[in-house]
Simulated scan of single mutants.
Amino acid sequence: MDNASIKLPEDFSHISDWFWGIISHAKEDRNTLKETLSAMAKDDILRFQEQFVDAAAELQDEPFTDYMEESEDGIEDISHWIVSKGKAFYAEIIHHPENTPHSVTGNTERILYGVADEVCLDKFGETTGIY
C-alpha cells in the first residue's frame, strides 16, 4: 500500500506524503535514514525534522496519552516510535487511539527521531533547532 492511499484526517494534511515516503524508505533503520537525509539540502532536512516533530506532537495529548505511561520522556518515546513505524501504523493509531502502546521500553533503537539533527550537525555544524 502506498502512502497516498492511506488516509489521515484533514487536519493532518501538514504532514506530507513526501515525509512519509522518507520514513517508509528508512524501514525503521537509523543508518538508512541518515544516508537518505545526508544526500538532501539543508532546507529539506529541516522540513523533514519539522514534519517529524509535528506528527509526533499530534500524539502527545489526549486521547493518545490516556493509554501511555505517564512520564514525559515515555510519551515522547512512544510518539516518536509510532511516527517511525510509518504512515499506515500512524493512521491506525490516529483512528484507534486505544491501540496506542503503553510503553516502548526495549524498542527505542528503532526510533528515527534525532537523525535529522545528527545529519545537520555532521553537514553544517549545527542541529536543526526544531524540537
Rank of each mutant, 00 (worst) to 15 (best):
E62C: 09
H14M: 14
T65R: 05
E62P: 09
A39G: 08
K42M: 13
W20L: 03
E35K: 14
I23A: 02
D17E: 11
Q60W: 08
A56W: 02
T65M: 10
F52G: 02
K42G: 12
D29T: 10
R47E: 09
D43C: 00
R47A: 08
E28W: 07
I23G: 01
H14P: 00
D54F: 06
T32I: 14
L46A: 00
F64N: 08
A41P: 12
D43M: 01
Q49I: 02
F52R: 03
S24V: 04
I22Y: 08
N31W: 09
S16G: 07
S24I: 07
D66I: 03
D61C: 09
F52L: 06
S38Y: 13
F19Q: 04
Q49Y: 08
A56G: 13
A26H: 03
F19W: 10
F48Y: 15
S16I: 13
Q49N: 10
Q51H: 06
L46K: 10
L59D: 10
I45C: 04
V53Y: 10
F52Q: 04
E50G: 08
D61A: 13
D29F: 00
R47N: 14
R47Q: 09
G21L: 12
P63V: 02
L59F: 13
D66M: 06
E62Y: 14
S38M: 07
W20T: 07
L46Q: 10
I15Q: 01
F52N: 02
Y67G: 00
S13Y: 11
K34I: 00
S38L: 06
Q60Y: 12
A57L: 15
L59K: 11
G21S: 12
F19H: 10
T36F: 00
W18H: 01
N31A: 13
V53R: 05
E50R: 13
A41E: 15
S16A: 11
M40I: 08
E58S: 08
R47W: 06
R30Y: 04
A56M: 09
F19N: 05
W18R: 12
V53D: 05
S24C: 04
H25T: 15
H14Y: 09
L33P: 03
D17Y: 13
A56Y: 00
H25A: 14
E62S: 15
D54N: 13
N31S: 04
L33W: 04
N31E: 14
Q51L: 04
A57F: 14
E58F: 04
A39K: 15
D66K: 13
S38A: 11
P63K: 08
R30T: 06
E28D: 10
T65Q: 00
D43K: 15
D66Y: 04
G21A: 03
Q60K: 15
F19K: 07
Q49V: 07
F19P: 00
M68I: 02
W20V: 04
S13C: 11
I22T: 13
S16M: 06
D61W: 10
E35C: 02
K27H: 09
I15H: 03
F64E: 05
E58N: 11
E35P: 05
Q51T: 05
H25F: 07
A41C: 02
K42I: 14
T32W: 01
D66G: 04
D17L: 14
L33N: 01
